[in-house]
């Protein structure tokens, strides 16, 4: 099978570019810890209110962990609890969420906080809120007729 010299050049360039992309992503994910949200913990979706983490949604200061705060959200058609929350600027926060009914999407506009929220699973992501502003939390996975009304607000304040 014959391959033109220029095609070889092109494929070498293309494959190299893909390898560079993968290396950047791999180092960032596995060495710097920037993995996509992938928590492997589970919860009974019918007993979310009794669960240690989820019985009091909202922002909590924590000690002795790699992060300073835990910000807990409970998703239920068609609302996020809490409906609004203030986070101090520069706080390193673990955002934790689960669903009491169907699948929801936890997206915070203008940030990298974006994760699927599925009944039975706990979703979490750690981030540092380093820019002041009002960030809209919205459901970005279809969950029913009120899907587009399902919101919350994170206010990063000094």
């Amino acid at each position: 099978m014959h391959m033109h010299k220029f095609e070889k050049i092109w494929l070498i360039f293309g494959v190299t570019a893909l390898l560079v992309f993968l290396s950047v992503l791999g180092v960032s994910a596995f060495y710097l810890g920037n993995q996509p949200p992938s928590c492997l913990a589970v919860v009974d979706p019918t007993k979310v209110d009794e669960h240690e983490t989820f019985k009091e949604p909202g922002l909590k200061k924590v000690e002795g962990k790699d992060w300073d705060y835990e910000l807990v959200f409970v998703a239920q058609a068609f609302a996020y609890t809490p409906g609004t929350v203030e986070v101090p600027l520069g706080a390193k926060v673990k955002v934790i969420a689960t669903s009491k009914d169907v699948i929801h999407g936890f997206g915070v506009a203008g940030t990298n906080i974006n994760m699927m929220v599925e009944p039975g699973y706990i979703s979490e992501i750690v981030t540092t809120f380093d820019k002041v502003g009002e960030y809209l939390v919205l459901c970005n996975e279809y969950c029913g007729s009120g899907h587009h009304l399902m919101t919350s607000m994170i206010k990063v304040v000094e």
């Binding site: 949200p37 992938s38 928590c39 492997l40 974006n114 699927m116 699973y121």
Partner: peptide, 8 residues
């Protein structure tokens, strides 16, 4: 990629 339950 963004869902729980699957190892990264």
């Amino acid at each position: 990629l963004l869902e729980p339950g699957i190892d990264p």
